[in-house]
Design a protein around this nucleic acid. Structure first.
Lengths: 199, 199
DNA sequence: CCTCGACTATGACAGCCGTCATAGTAGCCG
DNA sequence: CGGCTACTATGACGGCTGTCATAGTCGAGG
């Protein structure tokens, strides 16, 4: 994750997402975000007059865009673009992080859903939109690989559901096993869907 | 979820799990748990001298046992026990809840993982154990259906990963679509694994 | 009756939280 | 220079949190 030294506002959104990944939304304090971003505390109420909710919503939105962008990057980098290979690349991003940086972080959108789905509807909607962008990006990639349109969305949902769940399991177990298992089991299934070009 | 009027201690653990499902671990207060359980506040420090951590850990453990038990029940109730049918039953539990009671609650073990994996190691271990019991229950059911042993564990991990992820998506979207999608896509795959009795 | 243990009751405490109010600085523009 | 805007700085406030300390109730057993 490139730490681009953009404006302080963007840095705060990024830092919020990073902290939410680790501690969850509720445990992440605004003062903490400011410190992490190297930004003055007073800027929080200036850039985010909507308070913590606005900051969290933007962090979730940022994460959704980031995830969608990553899918496009993976797709472009694949030597042989197949659904299984794309999924393997998505999973590998997480196994790589966990093996090199430890199991400290999960998915910020998942954290926002767990912590805010019932208490803050705007955040829930932001999470829904983030998942939506992510799924769309995957679905688009799948259609580009020959998966029929109506099936692509369903497979994209399956891929992201499995990935999110495996991230959860891996973080609880502190072991990448669930991630590699899911990739290994689902890969051939996904490729078959592209091969038959129909169900 | 039968509200058995057991001892106050058990009621508090149950209420804690219920509240964690909705609000997450951090947002769930101890006073709130006592009120929900109809138990006196003073009993908290008596029954749970380990504080909130102990209460949360026990709630997570309870949830793990509950999930494992549900798998056994589903298995016994299936007219034709196949992996796909078991998975469909597991998913249906959630679609039923969401359609009749709204999208207010998620999986308490997932919530504990998101909120505590980094901050409270004992809770992380409790979540890992809960997932482990759940996965074992599913894997045992699969082997009983003719899935080879080494494959059963992998498929059980895939099933629970997909289910957890779909729960997350469904709660964010306030729509059961991800749940039914996952069940529909994964069902035939799981049945095929049982049919071929090998990969 | 007395005692002892299990359980309940309640108030206090320190700490952190998000938010607000107020004031201050810096820099561009006229 | 004056003035306006963007941004920063800081202290205070009320509310909620988990935890602790202390005292009270109550029933069984000697």
């Amino acid at each position: 994750m490139a730490e681009r030294a953009r404006g302080p506002r963007e840095r705060m959104v990024f830092s919020a997402a990073q902290l939410i990944r680790r501690e969850g939304v509720v445990s992440t304090g605004m003062r903490e975000v400011a410190v992490e971003a190297g930004a003055p505390r007073g800027s929080l109420q200036h850039y985010f007059p909507g308070g913590k909710t606005q900051l969290v919503d933007e962090a979730v939105g940022w994460a959704g865009g980031y995830a969608a962008q990553r899918v496009a990057r993976f797709l472009a980098a694949l030597p042989e673009p197949t659904p299984g290979a794309l999924f393997a690349a998505m999973v590998r991003q997480w196994t790589d992080e966990y093996e090199t940086a430890g199991f400290s972080g999960g998915c910020p959108v998942a954290a926002a859903t767990v912590d805010c789905a019932e208490s803050a509807d705007s955040t829930r909607r932001a999470a829904s939109a983030a998942f939506g962008r992510w799924i769309s990006a995957v679905a688009d990639a799948l259609t580009g690989m020959g998966v029929p349109g109506e099936r692509a969305g369903a497979l994209a949902t399956l891929m992201i559901s499995s990935l999110e769940g495996a991230i959860l399991l891996a973080r609880a177990e502190r072991d990448v096993r669930p991630l590699v298992t899911v990739a290994r089991e689902l890969g051939p299934v996904l490729d078959a869907a592209a091969g038959t070009k129909g169900h």
